[in-house]
């Protein structure tokens, strides 16, 4: 059974690009355009990993992450953000993220990191 990835971003172009990428790598992909959608999808489809943007129009990424990490058997969370301050990254880890990656990213790097995270116990 293939692993499930939820991608959350309000930038439609980024969303489409990542969806295409991971589908081709054989993952089962869900997408959400805002925090509220993301929460609902986490509940309904229990992904193994969430790729999470921070700046979104309704609920921000930190809050979504806390919501995710409060669940039993919580999926891994990777923040994917253009927020570049050291303090942004620290806050990301504080709310329970497994990884904080900066935008712009390289597709190869993300694929690599996700492989490491999902196969690790």
């Amino acid at each position: 059974m293939s692993s499930k990835i939820l991608i959350v971003d309000d930038e439609i172009n980024i969303l489409m690009s990542l969806e295409y990428l991971f589908k081709r790598k054989g993952y089962e992909v869900f997408i959400a355009r805002n925090g509220t959608e993301a929460k609902a999808l986490v509940d309904s489809s229990s992904p193994d990993l969430v790729l999470l943007d921070i700046m979104m129009p309704d609920v921000d990424g930190y809050e979504v992450c806390q919501y995710i990490k409060a669940k039993e058997n919580a999926p891994k969370v990777i923040f994917l953000s253009a927020k570049s301050k050291k303090s942004d990254e620290e806050k990301g880890y504080e709310v329970g993220a497994d990884l904080y990656l900066h935008k712009p990213f390289s597709n190869k790097e993300i694929v690599q990191k996700i492989k490491e995270l999902i196969t690790s116990p």
């Binding site: 930038e11 172009n13 980024i14 690009s17 990542l18 295409y20 990428l21 700046m55 253009a82 927020k83 570049s84 935008k103 712009p104 990213f105 390289s106 597709n107 190869k108």
Partner: peptide, 18 residues
């Protein structure tokens, strides 16, 4: 400004890589 510049750049780079 940096944040706002990075967002379209991210999309461009990711799609170009695809």
């Amino acid at each position: 400004v940096t944040h706002e510049l990075r967002t379209p750049l991210t999309a461009i780079r990711s799609q170009a890589e695809l």
